[in-house]
Structures are given as structure tokens and as C-alpha cells.
Design a binder for these strands. Structure first.
Lengths: 157, 157
DNA sequence: TTTAAATCCTAGTTATTTAGTAGGAATTAA
DNA sequence: TTAATTCCTACTAAATAACTAGGATTTAAA
């Protein structure tokens, strides 16, 4: 019951693009330097995100990637579903549809799987890339004041 | 982001025990016949549930397994966590604890993982085995009336 | 026009996990 | 004594995850 590196790296890459591709395209190389990820691997992940319409690319020197939409228009759910597939904990969540489940005894657990699916999707669909960017700005700000004022880093409200 | 067969089979086995082990111990063999699961494999799964204190066993002929606690005292979350490990989508959910995450840039995604964890656990901790048993009784009842009255099967309230 | 920095594309490869299989030892009711 | 059961551990095949490798294409800039 774990997300793979595709989802984790992909979300970090998208956040990186949100934070850094405002004015110019951002290369895979620079993302990987910041995020500590393998370049060839992230290439494949970003290719998936491009195909899904969340990032655009420009080739050649000074080329790279940038977001295709406004960060507020991209949810964490969008990103994760593109990279991980649906976020259902069990493939068979549609009650009374699969033939193997005509045996109702098997079906009861589906109510559980369905509720888990719904709760996961509810969470990830209600966090936008913009939210994460804001969270990041907030952390940066607090870090700075922590350094400046020599006080402990605090969670952002 | 899928549950393994351990969690799925395990929950079905526990439900089976809830429904069938009221008066007598239930053998692995009979559970597997009803549920269509490999016997040797379910043995291993049930051994884990036993070690965790959710089922008890009696050996020899007429032996088998039964629940250690009242179904209302056992949550779906208890069962799944025993068999799947924690239900966090990413291992690193504790903000600002891991060394690799002192780089705050990496940390922002953790807010997402934490929220997903919380929502999953909230769901599974609020469904008891008793709830599933009731759901099953309800389905059985509706199936019967569907056969009797020749009307469509309906979802249970 | 050449160079080099970048994306684009696809085919390996290695390690880990999953989902079992296999089979014998111990227990115990009939 | 028999046979049904749990108990225990080692092995295994298949799938998946997490990359690595390397060449083709594009294009800004010298």
C-alpha cells in the first residue's frame, strides 16, 4: 500500500516546475540536481506528465519544461493518477458488477475499498499545486526568520 | 498503491470467521473453499492474525480458528495494518524528522502523504468487523426477497 | 556552420516484492 | 490407531519497481 517513486518524484518535479518555471523552461538536469533524482528516470516520468497535458517542453539549449496550466488548476490527484493509475486500494471496487463477485460474500469487503478510494481521492483532489507552492513559500520564509532570529522553525498556519 | 492479497484475503477470512465461527472452530480448508483461496497461503496469513491476537486456534480434528475478540472490537484498520503494515502511502510522513528532508523543499509533499494517511486510517478505523457482518446479513436478506418476490436486488440502508 | 545542451525514444537490467507451492512435524478427537 | 487439523519453514516463479544505457533529434548561440 505504497506509492511508487513515480508518484513521489513526479509530484516533486511538478512542484519544482511550479516554483522555478515561471519565467523560463527548467531542464531535467536542474530538477534532478535539486531533487536528487536520476535524470534518465525523471525524463520518463516527465514524459508521462507531458503526454497527459500537464507540462510542455522546448528542445535544444536553454530548453526544458514548464507547466502547461496554472498551478491552481492542477491538483495533486491529477498528478498522482497520471503516474500511479487510479488510487483505488483494490482494483475491484464497483459493487455488483464483476462476475466473480456475484457471490455476495465476496462483495462486502468492497464497501471498505470503495470508502478508502473515496477518501483518498477527496484528499488529493482538494490540494492544488498552488497550495503546495504556498506551503513551500511559507517554509522558506520561516526558515529565513529562524536563521535571522535564531528561533525554532515553526509550522506554517 | 494497491493492497496486497494478504490484506484482501485476510479481511475476507476474518469476515468468514465472524460469520461462521460463532459456535465452533472453522478450518482453513472450509474458509478456502468458500473464499476460493489457496490453503497453504491463507494458513500463513491467519498465522499472522493469530500472532497479533485477533484469532485463536484449536488443533486436531474438529479444530480450526475462531475470533479472539467480539467483532465489534475488531476494526478493519486493525486487520489491514497487521497484514499490510502501516497504511501510509509513503514511509516518510513525519515532517522534519528524517535527515534527508532537512532540505525543506523535499518536505512539502509530506503534507500530502500525511493527509492521505490520516484519511485512510480514519476510514478503516471506523468500520468494525461487526459492521461488515451486518452488511452481509443485509445482502443475504435482500437476495432472498429478490428471489421470493422477483424484484431487483437493492442496496442495504 | 558547427557545437553542445537539451528533449525524445526505446530497450535492456537488477533487485525486490508478491503470491504462492511444498512438505513434513505436532496435536488431538473419534 | 487413524485422520483431520494446525504449525512451521524453506523454496520458487512471476511480476513489478527502479532504474541504466545510449543513440536520435532539435535548436540556441558562438
Amino acid at each position: 500500500m505504497k506509492l511508487s517513486t513515480k508518484g513521489r518524484y513526479g509530484l516533486r518535479a511538478m512542484l519544482d516546475l511550479g516554483l522555478n518555471s515561471k519565467d523560463c523552461a527548467v531542464s531535467i538536469k536542474s530538477i534532478c540536481e535539486r531533487q536528487g533524482i536520476s535524470e534518465n528516470y525523471l525524463e520518463q516520468i516527465v514524459a508521462t506528465l507531458k503526454k497527459a497535458g500537464y507540462v510542455k517542453s522546448t528542445r535544444g539549449p536553454k530548453g526544458g519544461y514548464s507547466l502547461m496550466k496554472e498551478p491552481i488548476e492542477i491538483s495533486v490527484g491529477d498528478i498522482l493518477r497520471v503516474l500511479e493509475g487510479d488510487l483505488n486500494p483494490v482494483d475491484c471496487t464497483i459493487v455488483n458488477e464483476n462476475k466473480a463477485c456475484d457471490d455476495s460474500e465476496l462483495c462486502v469487503t468492497k464497501f471498505v475499498w470503495k470508502k478508502i478510494s473515496e477518501s483518498i481521492n477527496q484528499v488529493v483532489d482538494n490540494i492544488s499545486l498552488k497550495d503546495l507552492m504556498n506551503e513551500q513559500y511559507c517554509i522558506d520564509k520561516n526558515n529565513e526568520s529562524a536563521i535571522m532570529n535564531n528561533i525554532d522553525k515553526k509550522r506554517c498556519k
